[in-house]
Structures are given as C-alpha cells and as structure tokens.
Design a protein around this nucleic acid. Structure first.
Length: 501
RNA sequence: GGUUUCCUGGCCGAGCGGUUAGGCACAGCUCUGCAAAAGCUGCUACAGCGGUUCGAAUCCGCUGGAAACCUCCA
C-alpha cells in the first residue's frame, strides 16, 4: 500500500471532493477538535472520534507520517447563563476545576480505549497553552483585527471581513450580512462594537475560578482561541486537515479561521472535514437537551431506547456502516442488524484465515472467480479512497465473504480460487477489519486462559460421542443446556464449533 | 425569520447521468437424526409533480416533509 493511490476528500471550504495533496510530501498534519471535559463523553462525541480514527488509520496504512493533534479543552466555554462550564461543573461537585477536568479527561480516554481508537500524536490542553493564546491575542491586536474594552479583547469581525474578502463565512457558508440581520440583542454584549464580534480574551469576574494574568487583565482566553493557538503551535500556520463535528462549523471553526488569519495573514488548514451528527429519535443527540444515550448505557443495555446491551465493537461497526458525512440514526433495530453483521464478518474472517493455501499450486493464472474477487478487493480500497467510504468497503468484504463460505462449505472446490488470490483475500480481511476499521474480536474476552476452550472441547467431544451412538437425548440435552447458557453449538461439515450467541 | 442539508425497498444504509451496493428482517431450497449455524435463490426501492437528456435515484424547478446551524454542544 502506498501514497500512489489517489485519495479524494470532501472539503467543507469548497463543498467538493478534492484530490488530497499533502503540504509536505509523505506527511499529514491533522487537527481535530477534542472534547470539553466538563462531563461524561456521550455517544455523539464517540462517533466523531471514531470517524477520525478511521481516517487517521487509513492515512497510516497509506504510509503517511501522520501528526494527529486532538486537544482537550479544559477552560473557556461559557454556558448560556454566562457561567464557565468548568466552573459550573466544579461548583456543583465542590471540586477544583482541574479536578473536574481530570476526572472527565480520564473518562474520555477510557472511552476512547474501549472503542479501540488510536491515541493522537499530541493531545494538548488549553490550560497548558495560555501563553501561546495570549501571544495570539497580541498578534491579532497588532494586526488591527481586535480591540480592547475594559480588560477584555474582542475580535473585530466587520473589519476583518471587509479587509479579507472570502474568508469570514468560508467554513460555515454564512454570509456576514445575514449575521448582522440575525444577531439580535443578546445579553452582555454591551462591550462589543458589533454583535458578530467575539471575545478572544475575557476579563475575569469575582466568581470565575480559572484566571490567568495577561497584558489586558486577569482573565481567561476566549472560547475559540485554544484551537487556533495549539494547531499553530504543533502543526504550523498552515496545515493539511482540520476536522471536527458538524456543529462546530459555526461559530467555532469560523472564528478559528478568523483568528488564525487575523494573527498571521494565512489560512490555518487547506482542508476542513466535518463528521455528521448521531441522531436519536430523529434528532441530534445532545447532552444539553437530554436527547442522548450514554455509551455506558448502551454497553450495559440499561437505556430505555435499546432492548439489550451492545458491545463497543458492535457500536463501532454500526458507526462504520454509514458514511461519516451522513447523519446516522441510532435505533434498536439498526443496532441489532449491526450486531449480526459484525459477528458474521468476524466469523467469516476466522473461517477465511483457517482455509489452507496450496502454495505449490501457484501458477499466476486467474479464472473468473479470481478476477471477481480481485475486483471486489480493489473496490474496497476504492471506497476508502473516495472520502473514506467505509460503507462501500464493508459491502465489498461481505461479497468476498460469500466466496469464503462457499469454499468452506465445499460448494466451490478449494482450488476454484488461485492460491495467491486466497492469500490476498486473507491479508485484505485482516487489513480492513483490524487496521483500517479498528475492530477487534470482543466475543471471546473475559480473561480466559484457555480453560473455557478446553472445557468446551471436552463437552462437545462427549456430545459427539453420544451422537455417534445415536443417543439423541444426551446430545440434545448438551446442546439445549449450552444454548440456555448463551452458547451456540454450530454443526458444520468440518466438525463442531461454538460461539456466544 | 435567515442559511444549509436531507427525504432510497419492512428496517438500517451506499449511490454524485447508463450494472443486483451491502447488512438486517422475511420466504423457499440445500445440508442435517431434529434443530441451529452456514450456503443458495427470491424480495428491484428511490417523497410528489414537472423539466433537461438517447437515458435520472443521480442535474434543474416547484410542492410537501424532516433536520442542522444562526446560542454551549462532536
């Protein structure tokens, strides 16, 4: 696998798929907006990070050196009542703000681990980059795109937009005139010269808990500044990809672009990627309005919205069945279908890997089956090349799986497929399932050291013996009892196997 | 109110002008002591109405429905 493949990625800035061309050949710099750690990660967050995890993994598969930066925001986001989120969380729980941040950061990491996402290369925290943010505020002031009022500093949107045509609104598609018309008089905007302006430094009030010294006041950085400052620090002024959830387009990403542009005169990212929302009850999942399922509820089956528990890998697979730019509706039926599909794919892979390869029969020949399979393999990669279309890739694997079963069931002779093609099928499955999709077999976990396998093989041995004696009472009792325990006995042509139902 | 997106078979979901996407469910068959598992076969849909085109789910217009953003959210 190499970078010769032509990768097309949808760019929010242009509204089109573009051929990906890295700024530095062989390298990818990618920044993804991370979570604000003031409460538990919810499933919507997970979908975005799973999406970017697959993107990260695919770049790596293509042999790019990826620097993947995903921040932790542990300061600076105000709630609608004007209170800092971190402060609010800490007051409720009688904790230091950093205790709140720490608790939920740990929880977030744990969730990312459970969902088998690779860690980012750098995970900077907003509170660890206050000097960088102050510096950026100063740069913006120096370039004349901000003004100070009573110790707070505001970004001057109209001036910036007028002097830099085509920048403000490039991410969200918003037209400044509409913003003017629409921005009604909201509370506490008295200091702003224009309603579209936004704070890049806020003077602290007595009730604020997280405060830093700056040339303008003792206060804290603005809502969007940390991403601008940290992406610049670790990826440079202009880098390849900036990603995040769809709901961050405005105002967060729009203002980020303005800040970066305003401080250095250049665009931060060439390519902006946005993952779409996870839906529940046909509405966006949202922690603020309670329309949400926590991952824990999903994994334990305690949500009112689901009939049973779904494993993290089933949830991950469910997410991959849809394209990252589509909204995805979470329903019990859809999860059930994903669970079946996931188990079948994993089972198919097991069977495939156990098929013997007759290496001496290599003669470079191809028949129709071979060509069809090679075509399907190519389609799986083409799907990924086309804006990371995991749905296409999964469909292709399923079709290849059909050949696997036909051979395993001897509906197709073992030599119907050339050995080298069979080898390629094996490696393709391994690559896609584990390296690209980031799935893992979680059916057999529970820290078992082979005891269960041994017991099962003994039990199935006894059953088999009973069957040869035509002792159906005994053999059926074994099968039925195991079934009650959630273990399914599978009688195949090649012998008996078992799995958790 | 403004901006934008979406509307695909029983369900989920690809699709970006011309082939059956795929999965789940369902039905029939094969295998099997019975069953399950597995396989095979079937199930051909694109909100409605117009238009462009040799040809449209795919492009354009209108109508209807839904959602997102415009305020913190992935």
């Amino acid at each position: 696998m190499n970078q010769a493949r032509s990768l097309r990625i949808y760019n929010t800035l242009t509204g089109k798929k573009e051929i990906f061309e890295p700024i530095v050949p062989g390298h990818v710099g990618m920044y993804v907006c991370g979570p604000t750690v003031y409460n538990d990660a919810h499933l919507g967050n997970c979908r975005t990070y799973v999406s970017f995890d697959v993107i990260h993994r695919y770049f790596r598969l293509l042999d790019y050196k990826v620097r993947y930066v995903r921040n932790i925001t542990d300061v600076g986001h105000l709630t609608d009542d004007g209170e800092d989120r971190m402060a609010k969380g800490s007051k409720l729980a009688q904790l230091e703000p950093m205790e709140v941040a720490q608790r939920y950061t740990v929880g977030f990491h744990e969730m990312m681990r459970i969902l088998n996402t690779l860690p980012p290369s750098i995970e900077p925290r907003a509170t660890g980059h206050i000097p960088e943010q102050i510096e950026m505020v100063q740069d913006i002031l120096d370039r004349g795109y901000a003004y100070e009022k009573n110790g707070s500093v505001y970004f001057n949107v109209p001036k910036f937009a007028a002097e830099n045509p085509g920048t403000y609104g490039s991410v969200s598609g918003r037209i400044l005139e509409d913003l003017y018309a629409e921005t009604r008089e909201l509370k506490s905007q008295d200091e702003k010269e224009h309603p579209a302006d936004f704070a890049i430094w806020m003077k602290g009030r007595p009730q604020d808990l997280m405060l830093w010294k700056s040339p303008w006041s003792v206060g804290f950085p603005g809502w969007h500044l940390e991403c601008s400052a940290m992406s610049t620090k670790y990826l440079g002024k202009t880098f390849d990809i900036h990603g995040g959830g769809n709901d961050l387009k405005f105002p967060h990403h729009e203002n980020e672009v303005a800040q970066n542009f305003g401080s250095c005169g250049c665009a931060p990212a060439k390519l902006w990627m946005h993952a779409n929302m996870l839906l529940l009850n046909n509405k966006k999942m949202s922690k603020s309005d309670g329309n949400t399922i926590s991952p824990a509820e999903l994994f334990t089956g305690t949500s009112q919205h689901t009939s049973k528990a779904y494993s993290p890998m089933v949830v991950r697979f469910f997410m991959l069945m849809a394209h990252y730019r589509s909204t995805l509706d979470i329903t019990d039926e859809a999860l059930l279908a994903a669970e079946k599909g996931f188990k079948k794919l994993m089972e198919t892979n097991k069977i495939l890997q156990s098929l013997p390869v007759d290496s001496k029969a290599f003669d470079g020949s191809e028949n129709d089956h071979d060509r069809a399979i090679l075509e399907l393999i190519e389609e799986a990669y083409k799907g990924m090349d086309d804006d990371f279309n995991t749905a296409i890739a999964i469909a292709s694997l399923n079709e290849i799986g059909s050949y696997v079963h036909k051979i395993a069931n001897q509906q197709l002779p073992a030599d119907a497929i050339a050995p080298w093609v069979l080898e390629k099928m094996k490696s393709t499955f391994e690559t896609f399932i584990f390296n690209i999709f980031g799935l893992k077999d979680d059916s057999a976990e529970s820290g078992d050291d082979g005891t269960i396998d041994g017991l099962m093989s003994l039990i199935l041995d006894i059953r088999n013996h009973a069957r040869t004696q035509k002792d159906w009472t005994t053999s059926d009792k074994i099968r039925d009892t195991l079934s009650e325990l959630g273990i399914q006995v599978k009688d195949g042509k090649e012998g008996v196997s078992w799995g958790k139902a």
